[in-house]
Nucleic acid binder design. Structure first.
Lengths: 158, 158
DNA sequence: TCTTGACCTCAAGTATACTTGAGGAACTAT
DNA sequence: ATAGTTCCTCAAGTATACTTGAGGTCAAGA
């Protein structure tokens, strides 16, 4: 396979640092769509190195496989994506990153305020209802760091 | 149970927005340590509302249950934690938050630089080896957004 | 007292993200 | 040609974070 511009799954694993099984799994999830040779073995394009590397970075940021698959789906399928394709996609990705960082920072600052004022008692804690600012996908609390329905709980024992 | 300063699991669920099953699960994981009444039912302290609320916030930030359990273990067990206990704990927690946000921001900025220069081709991409800056706990890629072992892959088709 | 809702335990199921293993075919080098 | 490595599929296992269900007990109001 050396010299070819198609990569076997093992070569791709070496190039990305991923395991072979993880790459198969990612294919199943739609992150890559390798061709097959006459013997049925996967043959990847060089551009797939970048797709998978992007996936790994995105995972660092807490994106799920299916979210990543959606982003990668924006890249052209037939031809290898070029700089413009990647830049466009990355720029969009960046927006989501910004949002995520912003939410984390906002939540941290609220926690910070709570530590600063020493309250944590919900009478004036800004973390109460901070949930509006935090991206709580799916399951989540109705009250954060608080006990709003009854305002007497903490100050008694302090 | 009304009027008592001990809460049933259902009351705690109402106050935190958690499900009853989740609270039982969290007990199993050591986030709370409720007493039992004569009939074997769980009786929670008011302070447990805060413990669980903290757990929920921490989960937003991407901490695992066991990490959260470790943090909560720093609070006094016998007596209800007071403001000073919570502040001390939160302050420590805040450090971890800062680190996490910093790492995300650093990684984003590297991605940003890549978009800016339009490279994404690994010859000078700063996301390559960005892994040093990114907290990759456990499994992780050896190469990020790149294909260092062979520097010719992207520029051909662009 | 009796009924109904809340609670109990324990086992199993769900989703995400993979890994591991069995049994077998393909590829590559000598 | 043949050995050794790599690849294939499919099923099952792992860890995290819970939920759901079965079968049964407890508590609180009428």
């Amino acid at each position: 396979m050396k010299g070819s511009d198609l990569l076997s799954i093992g070569e791709l694993a070496d190039r990305t640092g991923l395991s072979v099984s993880a790459i198969r799994f990612y294919e199943e999830k739609g992150l890559v769509h390798p061709a097959r040779n006459s013997g049925g073995q996967r043959r990847f394009m060089r551009a797939d190195i970048r797709r998978l590397s992007f996936a790994l970075v995105a995972q660092e940021f807490g994106f799920t496989i299916s979210e990543i698959a959606s982003r990668l789906a924006q890249l052209p399928e037939g031809r290898a994506p070029n700089k413009a394709d990647w830049s466009r996609m990355s720029r969009e990705f960046r927006k989501h990153l910004d949002e995520r960082i912003e939410k984390m920072t906002a939540l941290r600052d609220k926690l910070d305020a709570c530590i600063g004022c020493g309250c944590l008692s919900m009478k004036s804690c800004s973390l109460y209802n901070a949930g509006d600012a935090a991206a709580r996908h799916g399951r989540g609390p109705r009250y954060l760091l608080g006990d709003a329905p009854d305002l007497a709980s903490f100050d008694e024992d302090s």
